[in-house]
């Protein structure tokens, strides 16, 4: 077993080189490099944690904004519906009023027209009486040679017209 057989000649060299190489590893790698790698890992971890936090906050703010938006939307929708209902009611009232006014005007016009028609027919009737009386006077003169008075002719025509 060389570990024991060679012990006397190699132990000092083994221990010396072990201390040198492990010392190098401890001071250069362990003390020099490991803390830097650890700090890199920590920096990354804290950055990830920070980013997650920020994302969570942004998410919460997004929710808030959405809720706010919803509320405002509902509000404005209700307001719009009220406005529409009001406008509808107003329009209906206006239409009613206009219709009533138009109705009244039309009734006036009809009444005026009816009065005119009545007047016209009365005057036409009078003219017809006058013409009929004249004609009756002429007929009486031609037939009997007696000149009847205008009043008598008129009376006779009236009576005849009244009997149809």
């Amino acid at each position: 077993m060389p570990q024991i057989a060679q012990l006397a000649e190699v132990w000092s060299s083994q221990i010396f080189w072990m201390l040198v190489t492990f010392g190098f590893v401890f001071f250069v790698v362990g003390r020099g490099m490991v803390p830097k790698i650890q700090s890199t890992v920590e920096a990354r971890d804290s950055k990830i944690a920070g980013d997650l936090e920020a994302a969570k906050a942004a998410f919460a703010r997004g929710d808030e904004i959405e809720a706010d938006y919803r509320a405002r939307e509902n509000e404005s929708r209700a307001a719009a519906q009220a406005l529409v209902a009001e406008a509808k009611a107003k329009a209906a009232k206006d239409a009613e009023k206009k219709i009533a006014a138009a109705d009244a005007k039309i009734a006036d016009k009809i009444a005026a027209a009816e009065a005119e028609i009545r007047a016209a027919s009365a005057s036409a009737m009078a003219e017809i009486e006058a013409v009929a009386a004249e004609a009756a006077q002429d007929m009486v003169v031609k037939i009997s040679g007696v000149q009847p008075t205008a009043a008598a002719a008129k009376k006779a025509v009236k009576a005849a017209l009244a009997h149809g």
Binding site: E9, V10, S12, S13, Q14, F16, W17, T21
Partner: peptide, 8 residues
């Protein structure tokens, strides 16, 4: 002795 050996 601190000879540089194959172990070292």
């Amino acid at each position: 002795n601190i000879a540089f050996t194959n172990s070292a």
